[in-house]
Simulated scan of single mutants.
Amino acid sequence: MWQEISKYGNKLVQQGLVESHFGNISIRDGERIFITARGYALDEITEDGVVEVDVNSPTDRDLMSSTETIVHRAIYQQSRARAVIHAHCPFSVVESLLSDTGLIEPLDSEGKCFLKNIPVIRGQMGSEELAHNAGMALSDHNAVIVHGHGTFATGSSLKEAYVITTQIEHSCRIRYWYDLARKYC
């Protein structure tokens, strides 16, 4: 599993969707979650960079895993997700800061089709509030943006969660440039 997590960690960094030491990735396998370890650079993941934790409750192993483990766990408990990617996509973060409705409505056809409206949720990193809000929102969406923080995208595989992550950023980039152009044209 660590090889697949490493593959998508590299892709996220190469595409500028995260800075190397930020963001996290997980895969659910039955009652287990395989998640990136705390402090590991996503473009340098090795076997030691992935931690196995329980999907139902915290254990001592949570101390070695990402600080967002509580959020990943809530998402798995409240949705059908098999994979989760948390990234710090720059245009997505900007759009979350500009949103005054709690939703980002994609303007591009792919975003409208695959994302619908993207909820903007709140909560501090790794907090119970964020875990609750992400779990609730992702029970009927495939993506959310945490206000001022980043995206959580889900899928039946890491490939699907990665595609959703790239689509969120694409839709937010289009929306940003469109709003800017309208302001000055």
Results as ranks from 00 to 15, higher is better:
residue 76 Y to G: 00
residue 143 A to T: 01
residue 35 I to D: 06
residue 169 E to L: 07
residue 1 M to I: 13
residue 65 S to V: 06
residue 95 E to L: 05
residue 48 D to H: 14
residue 91 F to C: 11
residue 114 F to Y: 13
residue 106 P to H: 09
residue 61 R to S: 05
residue 59 T to A: 06
residue 11 K to I: 05
residue 156 S to H: 07
residue 144 V to Q: 04
residue 94 V to S: 13
residue 15 Q to F: 12
residue 10 N to T: 06
residue 92 S to F: 14
residue 134 A to D: 00
residue 184 Y to L: 14
residue 51 V to N: 10
residue 169 E to W: 09
residue 109 S to H: 10
residue 50 V to N: 02
residue 170 H to E: 07
residue 60 D to A: 14
residue 175 R to Q: 06
residue 58 P to D: 08
residue 144 V to F: 05
residue 125 M to T: 04
residue 27 I to S: 11
residue 60 D to L: 13
residue 128 E to H: 03
residue 24 N to T: 08
residue 60 D to M: 08
residue 9 G to I: 05
residue 167 Q to T: 12
residue 29 D to I: 04
residue 74 A to C: 13
residue 82 R to M: 12
residue 10 N to W: 04
residue 31 E to V: 01
residue 138 L to D: 01
residue 134 A to S: 14
residue 58 P to I: 02
residue 28 R to D: 05
residue 96 S to N: 07
residue 33 I to K: 03
residue 102 G to C: 09
residue 85 I to S: 04
residue 131 A to K: 00
residue 85 I to G: 15
residue 25 I to S: 02
residue 89 C to K: 03
residue 60 D to N: 12
residue 88 H to T: 02
residue 161 A to F: 12
residue 166 T to L: 04
residue 81 A to T: 06
residue 53 V to R: 12
residue 37 A to H: 03
residue 76 Y to F: 09
residue 12 L to M: 03
residue 180 L to C: 14
residue 38 R to C: 13
residue 34 F to L: 00
residue 162 Y to I: 01
residue 87 A to C: 07
residue 81 A to D: 06
residue 177 W to C: 10
residue 105 E to H: 15
residue 43 D to L: 10
residue 50 V to S: 05
residue 118 I to E: 14
residue 59 T to H: 11
residue 31 E to N: 15
residue 48 D to N: 15
residue 9 G to S: 01
residue 179 D to E: 11
residue 76 Y to P: 02
residue 38 R to E: 09
residue 133 N to E: 11
residue 60 D to Y: 05
residue 133 N to W: 08
residue 152 F to I: 02
residue 52 E to Y: 07
residue 54 D to V: 00
residue 34 F to M: 07
residue 74 A to P: 00
residue 148 G to M: 05
residue 43 D to T: 02
residue 121 I to V: 15
residue 113 C to F: 15
residue 92 S to W: 06
residue 152 F to L: 08
residue 184 Y to M: 15
residue 122 R to I: 14
residue 94 V to C: 09
residue 19 E to H: 05
residue 172 C to E: 02
residue 81 A to F: 03
residue 8 Y to K: 09
residue 78 Q to W: 08
residue 49 G to R: 09
residue 172 C to A: 06
residue 176 Y to P: 07
residue 99 S to T: 13
residue 19 E to R: 07
residue 142 N to T: 06
residue 127 S to A: 03
residue 45 I to N: 09
residue 107 L to N: 13
residue 141 H to N: 09
residue 131 A to S: 07
residue 72 H to K: 12
residue 149 H to D: 03
residue 77 Q to L: 12
residue 84 V to G: 00
residue 127 S to I: 02
residue 176 Y to D: 03
residue 1 M to S: 08
residue 153 A to K: 06
residue 74 A to N: 04
residue 112 K to D: 09
residue 77 Q to V: 09
residue 32 R to N: 10
residue 157 S to I: 04
residue 86 H to K: 01
residue 146 V to R: 10
residue 157 S to G: 04
residue 77 Q to I: 10
residue 164 I to G: 01
residue 171 S to W: 06
residue 17 L to H: 05
residue 137 A to E: 06
residue 98 L to Y: 12
residue 94 V to M: 10
residue 162 Y to G: 07
residue 57 S to F: 14
residue 107 L to T: 03
